[in-house]
Nucleic acid binder design. Structure first.
Lengths: 228, 228
DNA sequence: TTATGTTTTTAGCCTTATCTAAATTTACAA
DNA sequence: TTGTAAATTTAGATAAGGCTAAAAACATAA
């Protein structure tokens, strides 16, 4: 747990930047570029420079001018705490409040910044301590541990392979709804019948024998793991 | 529904001020004094003057220098919308997340400002459309209607009267817990055995025949309605 | 009606987070 | 290795919301 005794809990802006850095570079050790963070948060690059400086003063990132920022241990812990909250809240909204994929992300984005640790703990209990959210992303533990993710985009699967849908990216809510409407959600298995190099269209067959063909953007949003 | 199209949804500060004004003057038509609002929100009187000016520009209060502020229709609607959210959220936290009285208020205070109307609607459904929160305060309807409250503080009851606990003020959480621990919550009936003018101590007997004596501050926190 | 105390407002300043425009650094290709 | 394009930082503004200190208005008691 981070001690923000001096400053109180970090503002929701600070949290947004930390999450953005995490979501861009993950555990790779690389630093997040100003521009990438600016795009992800829809703010100007100048604002990101400014915030990187402040985050460094707070000890949440290591920042070198013109080189981008890397999360410190404290920064990463804080990011994962927000991601945990976000995914638990999404789970609640979907499973108990009847939200659709489209609706869920925006609401969770706002709630994650105001909810207390007590709320998070009690909600996790209420939900039965899930370790994935409904689109398959792992939920960090209260201690900030995150299950490593060895799934790959459907576009990189091979013809003939039997794969299990692991997660559907929540980047674009309309994509989530598209797959949701067709019953293609984490846990379902598919057989890859063709991966066409020419146009990167992937054709799969689902458990009910239905055949689907997906183009580039879609095959980058569905992550799968090969089944034995 | 208020159209904040120009400004987006009002900031949480704006909402806090509107709620404070409502909680101070209610439907009385009187105007809320700068000092009273400042105390309720723990801000300086100067900040209140400043905000009253801004609220007036937004059309949420009518404000006359040195005379305090009165909510406009729009201001009242917005205040009641927040109060509805607050009470629904409290209900959820108490009934489903195992919060205590002590814990619940603070969390609801933060959540009420970020939650969407969709969330409020779905939560109301989830909770079965309650019309009171767990300590007896009426929950405004989605249309902003609030059941009038004809209860009176226990201190004003008369000896020999049979009364039903209507609500316990949530002003002071330790008071809530005190009564909660003794099973004295909205809905229970009491028989008033003595109202002593000398020290304003009220003695009551509960349904199980237990006798309780309460001094001034407590008798001002419990609101009752005479039973036929 | 005047003196005194309380309330309220004004004036000026601070912080956070954002922006645009201009200056600077980096990277890469010829 | 040098020139240009892209990325980044700096400089200067703005807006919300808060503060303190000083000035102004109000209220009341003598």
């Amino acid at each position: 747990m981070i001690d923000f005794a001096a400053t109180g809990s970090p503002s929701s802006s600070v949290g947004d930047y930390l999450k953005a850095v995490w979501e861009i570079v993950g555990n790779s050790g690389e630093s997040a570029a100003t521009k990438a963070v600016a795009e992800r948060l829809s703010v100007s690059p100048a604002s990101v420079s400014n915030m990187f400086g402040r985050l460094q003063e707070m000890g949440l990132v290591e920042y070198e001018r013109y080189r981008g920022a890397v999360l410190t241990d404290r920064g990463r812990a804080e990011a994962l705490r927000l991601i945990r909250r976000h995914r638990l809240i999404e789970t609640f909204l979907l499973e108990h409040l009847g939200y659709s994929w489209q609706e869920v992300h925006e609401e969770a984005e706002k709630l994650e910044h105001v909810v207390s640790d007590r709320f998070t703990t009690r909600l996790a209990e209420f939900l039965g301590h899930p370790d994935q959210d409904p689109h398959g992303d792992p939920i960090p533990t209260a201690e900030g541990e995150l299950e490593p993710d060895d799934s790959l985009p459907l576009g990189q699967a091979e013809a003939g392979q039997r794969v299990r849908i692991f997660k559907v990216s929540d980047e674009d809510a309309s994509v989530l709804d598209y797959f949701g409407d067709r019953g293609l959600m984490p846990g379902r298995t598919l057989i890859v019948s063709e991966v066409r190099a020419l146009d990167n269209v992937v054709t799969v067959e689902d458990e009910e024998g239905r055949v689907h063909s997906f183009g580039e953007p879609l095959t980058r949003s569905v992550f799968v793991r090969p089944e034995p």
